[in-house]
Design a protein around this nucleic acid. Structure first.
Lengths: 216, 216
DNA sequence: TCGGCGAAACGAAACGGCCCGTTTCGTGCG
DNA sequence: CGCACGAAACGGGCCGTTTCGTTTCGCCGA
């Protein structure tokens, strides 16, 4: 990960469970006081630990955040044999995971931190790249089934779906119901014209009418 | 907006251009030092102004940020008569606007700030709600043209497109070329099965049946 | 028309408070 | 002994507020 390089290095004699206590405290502080109240000093106070101890194990606030986030393991998403169900299930469980554990707050904080710390941004970029690849596998499986065309950009589809999740996390809209999630995924997979109920002539008419009404 | 309530109130005698100088300084500090270097004291130093002057006019750092952002007017997007072109043009000009002015840095900072300040989050939510409505108008126009079904959720489409823009801003990926933007918009409008030659039977097999679509 | 007065906004400086990241010191344990 | 630890304190920065003396106008009476 690159954010906690020297951790558990060879020379380290011991680390009883103070590290775990610190991670516990960090999570608690983050949940109770929010990102604005999340400081190394606050974590140290809560863990009854010294600041130098924290700095010995984590080089930055973000590294600590990242470790806290990764402690909360995420459920792996089953292969339903159908891309839409795969993606809806993914969003559903991700939303509830973010809502019902402290993961949501922590990940929000990580994204915020990345906006003011380039090294965090780099780590976050690498992490999300991996996540996108993972989500993209759902599309790849659909390709293998012949469900979608082989030239579909799986990463881009993952990007669209993950982007939807990110902004809903960042703007306190994790309460979207399954119908909305399914509709959103449906748009990406089948488009908004999917059932062909639209008069093609009208569409063609609309496309030709390009002139005029510029400034809006 | 609610973030700068007393500004230019009746009793205010004058505000020569110190306010503008402060906004200029704020923008400059943000561009040169980034969000992490953006502090009221730094802005005051740069503007050769006193901190109380800044606090007299803006109640918080975020309010100042918001004013700086709104000073940079955005081009209104022309009606091309075609939804795909409307949305691609929207993304293209938004990306270049974020890339080539300081708007990108500022908006990133606003989003980050919203993660630790609830009042900022509320203002940002209202702002983006309005932006979504604006983007949704493109879909509504397409409905009026008969280009898309009348029961399409215009806000949700706007949400998908804007989410894509947000995450690309937040993860330093504003360099997407027009092909990628067009492909992303194409997925949302026409689905991922539209751009390739795929066996329709296989598609239908994988697809869930859509029932009861109401036509306009 | 003009001069002066006072209110309001200003720049500068300093306040207590919090947090940063680091250093020092005494303790406990292998 | 050697090392990790908790605790305390370091200088530095920014927070939001207060105080102080100055400047800039609007108002009003001469």
């Amino acid at each position: 990960m690159g954010l906690d390089p020297g951790r558990r290095s060879i020379g380290a004699r011991r680390n009883p469970d103070s590290a775990d206590a610190i991670l516990d405290a960090a999570e608690a502080v983050l949940v109770e006081a929010g990102y604005s109240g999340f400081s190394i000093e606050a974590v140290a106070r809560r863990a009854r630990a010294g600041k130098p101890t924290i700095y010995r194990w984590w080089p930055s606030k973000a590294a600590l955040l990242f470790d806290v986030y990764q402690r909360l393991k995420r459920v792996d998403h089953p292969d339903t044999g159908n891309l839409e169900d795969d993606l809806v299930g993914f969003l559903k469980s991700l939303f509830s995971h973010w809502r019902e554990t402290s993961s949501g707050s922590i990940f929000r904080s990580l994204i915020a931190e990345a906006q003011s710390d380039a090294t965090v941004a780099a780590v976050l970029a690498e992490y999300t790249k991996g996540r996108h690849a993972h989500t993209g596998q759902m599309v790849e499986r659909a390709k293998a089934r012949g469900e979608v065309a082989a030239d579909v950009d799986a990463t881009l589809v993952a990007d669209l779906v993950a982007s939807f999740a990110w902004t809903h996390l960042l703007t306190n809209r994790l309460d979207a119901d399954e119908t909305t999630l399914r509709r959103a995924v449906g748009y990406v997979l089948k488009g908004i014209e999917a059932d062909g109920s639209v008069d093609p002539a009208a569409v063609r008419r609309g496309r030709r009418r390009v002139i005029g009404r510029v400034t809006g």
